[in-house]
């Protein structure tokens, strides 16, 4: 059932056109942050308003929408955003990655590989990868124009000198198409390799900061590193306790107050699909 009194997918058509223009520019200049006239949405800034505006601008009546937060379709924020589009656009929604034409996400990329024709929409809290090193936007714009990313390399080097490795675990900076430094949004660095040469179109929306950017399909996305300190992703000592997967990002679940814990897939759809297919992890085998 859709909510009456509002345009399809909430935003008026003029606003959507403005957004699509910004998105086209973003696709044409991979990794470049395009300013846009971000609107106040009926959800708070910082809760996915950028992603919601991007989704609203690209959604058509035949689209099938999947929304995840922390890899799960069932967390309250994902439920809320999916419900918003079900109410305002009446589009079909799904939990299944292969069925979705548009996937809006916060903090994860699905474990199931994406396909050509799919669009990923990332919610971005902080689009400027240099922001923590240089808060002034007037300066960071200049640094991007000159492709002067020395700051970031120095920061990564200082990590190595101090800790022996790079101490960034999420929102790990990437270089897009050998040109623009880009914040991949706070996905774990585990997901960074999925950005590279993805067959899906990847759109990033930052509502509060009023920026969109994009990675077109099959575009080179390189995580910053050094020859003697190559980029690496997180690894766990044990596979998922529910489905036994050893190739997925695992969340730690605290079981009691005496140190009991288990590790399970953060991607709930991936995990339940594997369990349905007969895979079982240690917790399931113990219970059986």
């Amino acid at each position: 059932m859709t909510t009456s009194g509002y345009n399809f997918a909430y935003l008026d058509e003029q606003t959507k056109r403005m957004l699509r223009r910004a998105l086209l520019k973003a696709v044409a200049i991979p990794g470049y942050q395009v300013p846009f006239g971000s609107r106040e949405m009926p959800l708070p800034y910082g809760w996915g308003t950028g992603g919601i505006q991007v989704t609203a601008a690209i959604l058509g009546t035949n689209d099938v929408l999947k929304v995840i937060d922390q890899g799960s379709d069932d967390t309250v924020n994902a439920v809320n955003i999916r419900r918003f589009f079900a109410r305002t656009a009446g589009v079909a929604t799904t939990n299944r990655t292969p069925e979705a034409t548009v996937i809006q996400t916060r903090h994860r990329i699905p474990e199931t590989p994406l396909a050509a024709g799919q669009i990923m929409v990332y919610q971005v809290p902080e689009p400027e990868p240099l922001h923590r090193l240089e808060p002034r936007e007037a300066v960071t714009r200049k640094l991007h124009a000159l492709a002067d990313y020395g700051f970031m390399h120095v920061k990564l080097y200082e990590d190595i000198a101090r800790y022996g490795h790079i101490a960034t675990t999420y929102d790990y900076p990437v270089l897009v198409n050998d040109r623009y430094l880009m914040a991949p949004s706070p996905i774990p660095k585990f997901d960074n390799p999925k950005l590279n040469h993805s067959p899906a179109l990847q759109l990033f929306g930052a509502g509060r900061e009023k920026r969109v950017y994009a990675v077109p399909p099959y575009t080179k996305v390189e995580s910053l590193d050094f020859e003697d300190h190559p980029f690496s992703v997180q690894q766990w000592d044990a596979p998922c306790a529910l489905c036994g997967a050893s190739d997925s990002f695992l969340d730690e679940v605290v079981l009691d107050d005496v140190g009991g814990r288990m590790f399970v897939c953060s991607d709930s759809e991936y995990c339940s699909n594997r369990q349905a297919a007969g895979h079982a992890g240690s917790a399931v085998k113990e219970a059986a």
């Binding site: 106040e40 708070p44 800034y45 910082g46 809760w47 308003t49 937060d69 922390q70 890899g71 967390t75 309250v76 924020n77 916060r106 903090h107 994860r108 809290p125 800790y163 101490a167 675990t169 999420y170 929102d171 706070p186 996905i187 774990p188 660095k189 585990f190 509060r208 997180q234 990002f249 695992l250 969340d251 730690e252 953060s266």
Partner: peptide, 29 residues
């Protein structure tokens, strides 16, 4: 205030994945 209130309060949204990444790093360090 609309921007500030939203972003300050977004900290109550789940951050399981990022926190997990930091946990792993702190344990290693």
């Amino acid at each position: 205030s609309v921007e500030a209130s939203g972003f300050v309060q977004h900290l109550k949204l789940p951050h399981y994945v990022d926190f997990q990444s930091e946990l792993e790093l702190v344990r290693r360090m």
